[in-house]
Computed example of a mutant assay.
Amino acid sequence: MKFFNALRISLLASLASFSLVSVAHADNALQMELTANKVIKSTGGKVSYLPVSTAPAGTTIQYKATYTNTINKDINDLMVTLPIPANMIFTGEAIPASAQASTDGKNYADMPLMQKVNGKLVKTPLSEYRTLRWNIKLLPAMKSAAVALNTTVN
């Protein structure tokens, strides 16, 4: 049940988490579809994905958001974010890898995030990552772009 609630929270947050820097578009110019899939890696290294609504601790889940430009004009500089649900831990895998991360949902930086601990600069634990953000430089008219992040059920 925790996973399903996290997915619902993530979906609601994601629906509200995009912005258009260039606003030469009509209302409803962008559609977003969010999916959650269990990541299955075979012994040969092949990766497959299965839709999931519940999962035990330790399961790897990929959240994927596909953004579709529904108008006949390009959309430039589309900023999109995906939250990491509270009961999930980011694995460090983001697609595309150009994502920036945040521990507070406000301040973003390139990964890996760094912090000072006892005067030394160290990597921020992945368990502290709360949101990822991507800049889709160009989403052509009538085309789609996808972003994704992998998490582990805590």
Rank of each mutant, 00 (worst) to 15 (best):
Lys2Tyr: 13
Lys2Pro: 14
Phe4Cys: 01
Phe4Ile: 00
Ser10Cys: 15
Leu11Val: 05
Leu12Glu: 01
Ser14Val: 01
Leu15Ser: 01
Ser17Thr: 03
Ser17His: 05
Phe18Ala: 05
Leu20Pro: 02
Leu20Ala: 04
Ser22Tyr: 12
Ser22Gly: 11
Ala29Gly: 09
Leu30Val: 14
Leu30Cys: 03
Leu30Trp: 00
Glu33Ser: 02
Glu33Met: 09
Glu33Gln: 14
Leu34Tyr: 01
Thr35Glu: 11
Ile40Tyr: 00
Ile40Met: 04
Lys41Leu: 11
Thr43Val: 03
Thr43Gly: 06
Val47Glu: 12
Leu50His: 11
Pro51Tyr: 03
Ser53Glu: 05
Ser53Trp: 08
Thr54Gln: 08
Thr54Val: 09
Thr54Lys: 10
Ala57Leu: 05
Gly58Gln: 01
Thr60Glu: 13
Lys64Gly: 04
Lys64Tyr: 02
Ala65Asp: 07
Asn76Leu: 15
Asn76Ala: 14
Leu78Phe: 06
Met79Arg: 09
Ile84His: 03
Pro85Glu: 10
Ala86Arg: 06
Ala86Glu: 12
Met88Asn: 05
Ile89His: 12
Thr91Met: 06
Ala94Gly: 13
Ala99Leu: 02
Ala99Phe: 00
Thr103Arg: 08
Asp104Ile: 06
Gly105Asn: 07
Lys106Phe: 03
Tyr108Lys: 08
Ala109Ile: 05
Ala109Phe: 07
Asp110Arg: 07
Asp110Ile: 01
Asp110Cys: 04
Asp110Trp: 00
Asp110Ser: 13
Asp110Phe: 02
Leu113Glu: 09
Val117Thr: 15
Asn118Trp: 10
Lys120Arg: 15
Lys120Gln: 15
Leu121His: 01
Ser127Ile: 03
Ser127Val: 10
Tyr129Ala: 13
Thr131Ala: 07
Leu132Tyr: 08
Trp134His: 11
Trp134Pro: 10
Ile136Gly: 06
Lys137Glu: 05
Leu138Arg: 13
Pro140Cys: 04
Pro140Lys: 10
Ala141Phe: 09
Lys143Pro: 01
Ser144Leu: 12
Ala145Ile: 07
Ala146Trp: 06
Val147Glu: 13
Ala148Ser: 15
Asn150Ala: 04
